[in-house]
Design a protein around this nucleic acid. Structure first.
Lengths: 147, 147
DNA sequence: CCTTGTCGCAACAGCTTCTGTTACATCCGA
DNA sequence: TCGGATGTAACAGAAGCTGTTGCGACAAGG
């Protein structure tokens, strides 16, 4: 259960903001977003706070406050969301330093870093290929009741 | 610190087995492998147990026991190790079911599953491109003391 | 047959991370 | 000024991973 769902939560919020915007509702409160994600508003504020720091959403405070997309949904890629939420890379190196008296212990960390770096680049290329608008379109075609 | 180092530990063990084999030592005990990784032998037995179930290493029990590679290091890819250790995928979906009364809540899970599946495939393609022999070669060229 | 060295595995503790919750200060439009 | 909403700290609970101990199972070799 410890799977990282932060990218999912952030993307869900952005897709919901994009749909609301298309429907003419520019602002959503964290409570309204939380109702769709089915979680606590604080979780949403934390997530949207990450996206605000990355410049993907705008926030208005005070009375009548709420969140809105800072850019067109076509121009926001999952890669930007990934960077905004600062997800942990899939693989980690040794917790404790390997034995440096062993040739493998001496040289394996840079070797693995190279391989893991290539994997990370592949992930980034793939995430850059999907936009929030893409996810919204795909979401609307997956309506169990036929919508 | 919760970064998943299981792929790292398993790969380290396999690279060490490959080097020992090249040096003429066919069998290594979990204690010898643990000395190179700098961890507890039980950790190594757990990891090599995964690899044994996947058919990547052989084990001999009893006195004079130990581990050996089941295949040539050129033929073992990081993808097989990844599958053997059953690493968790980088992204998880919602912990709790989204609100099904919202169009986004209804359709976003299959949409995200598609995107995440493409990312997973990209990871697998990249991991399939590197073998244990590749990592061993790279490891031996990274010897700080010049070997 | 028996000793001995090693694996297999269960159980547990400690640590970290994540989610979820409560509480409260801050902000700003009306 | 008032009220509704964000920002953020503090905390609890759950889960996963590493590391450790202990002990049973196993097999080579004397």
């Amino acid at each position: 259960m410890a799977a990282n769902s932060r990218l999912t939560i952030a993307t869900h919020a952005l897709v919901w903001l994009a749909l609301a915007q298309r429907r003419g509702q520019e602002l959503l409160t964290s409570e309204q977003v939380a109702a769709s994600v089915n979680t606590n508003p604080v979780i949403i504020r934390r997530s949207l706070g990450d996206l605000r720091r990355a410049g993907l959403v705008d926030v208005r405070r005070g009375a009548g406050a709420g969140w809105s997309l800072a850019r067109e949904p076509e121009g926001i890629t999952l890669l930007e969301v990934y960077d905004a939420v600062d997800a942990q890379p899939p693989f980690g190196l040794h917790h404790t330093e390997p034995n440096l008296e062993c040739p493998v212990g001496r040289g394996i960390r840079p070797a693995l870093s190279g391989a893991y770096g290539r994997v990370e680049q592949a992930i980034r290329r793939e995430l850059a290929d999907t936009s929030i608008a893409d996810v919204l379109r795909e979401t609307l075609t997956n309506q169990p009741t036929g919508r």
